[in-house]
Simulated assay, not measured.
Amino acid sequence: MTTTPPTGTVADAQKDNWLDRFAPDWLKPYGRLARWDRPIGFYLLFWPCAWGVGLAALAQPQFGFGFWAVALMFVGAILMRGAGCTFNDIVDRDIDMQVARTRSRPIPSGQVTAREALYFLIAQALLASVVLFQFNRFTVWAGVASLGLVAIYPFMKRVTWWPQFFLGLAFSWGAIVGWTSQTGGLGWAPVLLYAGTILWVIGYDTIYALQDIEDDALVGVKSTARLFGANVRPAVAVLYSGAFVLWNGAAVAAGGGSVFAVLSLVAAGLMAWQLWTLDADVPKNPYDRFYNNHYVGIVLTLAFLADWVW
Rank of each mutant, 00 (worst) to 15 (best):
T4V: 12
P6F: 09
W26Y: 14
Y30F: 15
L33Y: 09
I40Q: 12
L45H: 01
F46M: 03
W47S: 03
G52A: 01
A59L: 06
F63R: 14
F65P: 04
G66Y: 02
G66R: 00
F67E: 09
A69Q: 13
A71M: 12
L72S: 08
V75E: 00
G82N: 02
M97T: 15
M97H: 15
Q98A: 15
R103W: 11
P106D: 05
Q111R: 11
Q124M: 15
F133L: 14
S146Q: 07
L147R: 02
V150R: 00
Y153C: 07
F155W: 11
T160H: 02
W162Q: 12
W179P: 08
Q182H: 10
Q182L: 09
G185M: 13
W188M: 12
Y194R: 01
Y194T: 03
W200N: 00
T206M: 04
I213L: 07
I213R: 13
A217Y: 03
V219R: 03
R226H: 04
A237F: 13
V238S: 06
S241G: 15
F244V: 10
F244N: 03
A250D: 10
A261Q: 09
S264R: 00
A280E: 14
F290R: 06
N292P: 05
I298F: 12
T301I: 01
A306Y: 03
